[in-house]
Design a protein around this nucleic acid. Structure first.
Length: 95
DNA sequence: ATAGTGACGGCGG
DNA sequence: ACCGCCGCCACTA
C-alpha cells in the first residue's frame, strides 16, 4: 500500500500488523514478496534510519536504488535523502 | 535436538 | 552519538 515516491520501515509495518517486536519477520516476508503474484513494492521498505539495508536481496545490488530513484526519491550512500518527509507510516496513514 | 544467522529495533550503559 | 544486548522467530547446517 505504500504509495510510489514514499517509503516506510520494517518496524512501522510490524507495529501496524500488531507485532511491534517482529520487524525482522517483515524483512523475511519481503523475500517471499518476489515470488508473489500480487505486486509488492518491497523497495519502498527500508530501515528506521532510512538506509537501503535490503538492497542485496534484489536481482542486482543497484536495483533497489534504481527503483526508488525512478519514483523521484533521492538516494545517497545507500540512504534515502529527506527520509523524514518521505516516510509513510501505515499506523497514521491507514486509519 | 541444537546452535547460528539475519531486509530490525528498543533500551541501557 | 555510539556500542552491545536481547526479544523476535523462520530457516539452515
Amino acid at each position: 500500500m505504500v504509495p510510489p515516491g514514499r517509503v516506510t520501515t520494517y518496524g512501522a509495518i510490524a507495529r501496524y500488523i500488531g507485532s511491534p517486536q517482529s520487524a525482522r519477520m517483515v524483512g523475511w516476508a519481503m523475500n517471499g514478496s518476489h515470488t508473489q503474484q500480487e505486486y509488492v513494492p518491497a523497495h519502498r521498505v527500508i530501515n528506521r534510519i532510512g538506509m537501503l539495508t535490503g538492497k542485496h536481496h534484489f536481482r542486482g545490488s543497484r536495483v533497489m536504488q534504481e527503483l526508488l530513484e525512478s519514483e523521484g526519491i533521492e538516494v545517497e550512500e545507500d540512504c534515502v535523502v529527506h527520509f523524514r518527509t518521505l516516510f509513510w507510516d501505515p499506523n497514521t496513514e491507514l486509519i
